[in-house]
């Protein structure tokens, strides 16, 4: 990991990985959509609305995955003072926020026909809403300082403290009474879901994961460009 704290080496690595992330994302999403909308059957309880699962569950997983990545990168940045880690955290935040918004919105569209309500203040839904606010708070705090490195450190602390919310989201369906159904894929005794539904779900999840890396790489490269632009401008005004 420390090898890639060097920005030049890191940039080279992500520039090489970016087309692969794009390829995996596009292929998995295309195959995933085909299985999700055409091949997979309707659910015996939820009928066709189960198809919302294929965009709702991957978005929710990514909401938590991105937050964990952001908090982890923030911790690396604080502990080893690797500026590259802060850049990764900063690039991840808006992508994670987008996935969290999608988890909430598609959940709402699934809740209306199945539960009879768009929204309910229960543990799962509320903790995911808090996750969205944590992302937004991170982005606001990060940009609120004239000194970027101070902003990065302040936001990193927020990200790390907020990480306590991630296990709360995961176990909220077990700890509290909720309308939300419990986990059916990530379980100790294996997934309780038929392969005809697991295939599109995993394809979409892989597509979403690769999509995150693709967009994150693009944003990290833009961040490095911005830093260089700033340095050049400074030099040119001094000259």
């Amino acid at each position: 990991m420390h090898r890639f704290a060097n920005p030049t080496r890191f940039l080279k690595l992500i520039s090489a990985l970016q087309p692969w992330a794009m390829g995996v994302s596009v292929l998995c999403l295309a195959a995933g959509l085909y299985f999700a909308l055409i091949v997979s059957p309707a659910d015996y309880q939820q009928s066709e609305t189960v198809r919302i699962m294929y965009v709702h569950v991957p978005a929710s997983w990514m909401a938590m995955f991105c937050y964990s990545a952001m908090a982890g990168a923030s911790a690396v940045g604080l502990i080893w003072r690797h500026l590259t880690a802060f850049v990764v955290a900063r690039a991840t935040a808006p992508i994670g926020a987008a996935f969290t918004f999608l988890a909430l919105a598609t959940g709402s569209l699934w809740g209306k026909p199945m539960w009879g309500t768009w929204w309910v203040w229960d543990a799962r839904l509320t903790s995911v809403l808090i996750l969205l606010f944590l992302y937004l708070g991170y982005m606001a705090l990060e940009g609120a300082f004239d000194d970027r490195s101070r902003g990065a450190r302040a936001a990193a602390i927020l990200a790390i403290v907020g990480a306590v919310n991630v296990p709360i989201i995961k176990f909220s369906v077990d700890w509290w009474n909720t309308l939300h159904q419990p986990a059916s894929v990530v379980k100790i005794d294996g997934p309780a879901i038929h392969s005809s539904m697991l295939t599109p779900l995993l394809l979409m999840a892989m597509g979403y994961t690769a999509f995150y890396f693709w967009v994150m790489f693009v944003r990290v490269r833009a961040e490095f460009n911005d830093a260089r632009i700033q340095a050049l401008r400074l030099r040119q005004t001094e000259a």
């Binding site: 609305t49 198809r51 987008a98 919105a105 598609t106 209306k112 967009v215």
Partner: peptide
């Protein structure tokens, strides 16, 4: 249930394409 399923997919595509 098209009125719930298609907006889910449409919104997902819209948001992901927008951030990309």
């Amino acid at each position: 249930y098209g009125a719930f399923i298609w907006p889910s997919y449409g919104l997902s595509a819209l948001v992901l394409v927008a951030i990309l």
